[in-house]
Every structure is written in C-alpha cells, then in structure tokens.
C-alpha cells in the first residue's frame, strides 16, 4: 500500500442513476498546491468535486484525506474536516443577504474571533462584498456572486478549497481578478482544486493538472508540461492562440 497523499482519490467510480460519470479515476493532491482539473463538457469534473464534498456517494473506490477515509462521511462532516466548495453555478442563497451568506459559510465554526478575522480577510480579497453586505445576494452582479460564492467557501476556514468553474460567464477582466484572488488564497496556505473551462488560465495558476475524458483520467502532468502538450493545445487551449 503506497503512502497516501494529502488528498487522494483511488479508482473512484460514481454514477448518476444508470449513467456512470466516473469510471475509475485516481488522482492525488499535495498540501499547499493548486491542481487544475480540465476536460470537455460532461467529462465528470463536477461529479468529481461533488463526490469529494460528499454530495454523491461512490459505487467503488475511495477518497482519503490526511490519510483517513473521506468518502464514508456525510457532507457536513467533510466541511468540518476542512474541505469546502464554491460550486458550479455559484449557488449563492439569493434571498439571503450577502452577510447571511457569508455567515452560513462559517456554519460549522465555533470560534467567533476566528470567523471575524476570516471575514476581514475576505473583505481584503473582495472589497466589493463589504459594500454589498446588507444587500440580498440575488441582486449582485455575476462577478460579485462568484466572489460571494468563493468568500462563503473561505468562511469555513478550509484546508482544501474546491472551485468549480469560477470564471464561467464572467468578463475577462473579472475572470482575471478571480484568478488573482485564487492565487492569494493559495499563498495563504489553502490547497486548491480548480475546475476550469479556461484551461490556459488554470494551468498558469496550477502546479499540476489532470485532464478528464468521459469519466477517466486521460492525462496527468505538471502544469507547464500540459501547457506545452500538443494534444492539450489543440483540445483545450484553442490551438495555442
């Protein structure tokens, strides 16, 4: 049995009803790194993150975090263990205020002082959120909603942050701002798994990357090698434009 990495997925199989979305994937994440997870629509990226977060149960395989099984825990225990997610489509609570959304991100935390400090940090990362604090989250612009979704996930003081297409639907300048904040979050010691359509930006941030193809890992390499890989360039980097 090889020693397990910080976060490790071993031969994971996951189905949505009769559709097998993950057909045995293995990947590992080291503490403190950013790992990019790339792949076409329907490849299984969201399914992977949902399974890590405990929203889906694998039919086979295992997930280990800090050497202990994660895939047997309910989702709220997984948050307590230190893994939070800003999900695909942001999923902010539209009828709750920005403040309430952020407070819910800290739902599992009991240290009020710590949560207040995290909130200050989030305001540094995303000053817009401070201005919008008492607004209903549903009234925010798309970019602000994404900031809120990430901020909310950070309020749980995660060790590992899962980001599912944070730049989707954002203007380039906003997308760049989001990527920059991901860099800062990582610099603060948070391990990141980044799912992105914008493969180039993701690989520029990440140290390593995995490419998913219909539920299997097609490629696993360092980010710089993936950026140079001709197959990746054609399929995911718009032919090296």
């Amino acid at each position: 049995m090889p020693e397990s990495a910080y976060l490790e997925l071993r031969d994971l199989r996951v189905s949505h009803g009769s559709v097998e979305a993950l057909r045995g994937i293995s990947l590992s994440v080291n503490q403190g790194e950013i790992v990019a997870l790339l792949g076409a629509n329907g490849a299984g990226k969201t399914t992977t993150l949902s399974t890590i977060s405990g929203l889906l149960r694998p039919s086979a395989g295992a997930i280990l975090f800090e050497g202990r099984p994660l895939h047997t825990l309910p989702s709220h225990e997984i948050v307590r263990r230190g893994i939070t997610q800003a999900p695909e489509g942001r999923r902010i609570f539209a009828l709750l205020s920005v403040r309430e959304n952020l407070e819910l991100g800290a739902f599992t935390r009991r240290d009020r002082a710590g949560a207040a400090a995290t909130l200050d940090w989030i305001f540094e990362l995303f000053p817009r959120l401070r201005e919008r604090l008492n607004q209903l989250a549903g009234t925010l612009s798309g970019g602000e909603q994404q900031m809120l979704s990430i901020g909310r996930a950070l309020m749980g003081a995660p060790k590992v942050l899962l980001l599912d297409e944070p730049s989707l639907g954002l203007a380039p300048i906003l997308a760049r701002a989001i990527f920059q904040s991901v860099r800062e979050v990582n610099a603060a010691g948070v391990t990141v798994i980044l799912v992105e359509q914008n493969a180039r930006a993701a690989l520029q941030l990440a140290s390593r990357g995995y490419v998913l193809e219909v539920g299997r890992i097609a490629l696993a390499d360092s980010a710089s090698a993936l950026l140079r890989n001709p197959d990746v360039q054609i399929a995911y980097l718009g032919n090296g434009e």
Partner: peptide, 23 residues
C-alpha cells in the same frame, strides 16, 4: 439566529446548504 438562517438556506438550495456544513 444562525439555525434560522440554516433553515432558510435549506429551503432555498439543499445541495448548497450541505456544502456549508449544514446537517
């Protein structure tokens, strides 16, 4: 209250509420 906010969150989006660590 915090629990009250969790009730509202669960009625808006159960999946997202679970991602907050709400049981």
């Amino acid at each position: 209250t915090r629990t009250g906010a969790a009730v509202r969150a669960v009625s808006l989006d159960q999946g997202a509420a679970r991602l907050m660590g709400i049981n």
